[in-house]
């Protein structure tokens, strides 16, 4: 039976983080200083997501009946 592996870079988590930042930026009282910090964090995340998708390959496995 296949098991869930923990990858070094968690795509779903990173994307969720990105969405959190977007929600933060959508509020009415955006603080400039904090915003600059979030922008920096977010840009780093964008870079990591792009980098991940550009470098990591899909893993393809053909299951035998006994895998189940």
């Amino acid at each position: 039976m296949p098991t869930k592996e923990i990858k070094k870079f968690n795509f779903t988590k990173a994307y969720a983080e990105l969405e959190k930042i977007t929600t933060w930026f959508e509020r009415d009282d955006v603080d400039l200083e904090e915003g600059m910090k979030k922008l920096e964090e977010g840009s780093e995340l964008v870079k990591e997501l792009k980098n991940y998708l550009n470098t990591v390959e899909n893993k393809i496995k053909e299951l035998k009946k006994e895998n189940f």
């Binding site: 977007t22 955006v30 922008l39 977010g42 964008v46 792009k50």
Partner: peptide, 24 residues
């Protein structure tokens, strides 16, 4: 699709920047 997703990421980033410009 990777490239479409990248454009989306860029768009999101632009929106953050817009939000900050608005604050400024």
């Amino acid at each position: 699709e990777r490239r479409e997703f990248f454009s989306e990421l860029d768009f999101i980033k632009d929106r953050w920047i817009d939000s900050l410009s608005h604050v400024v």
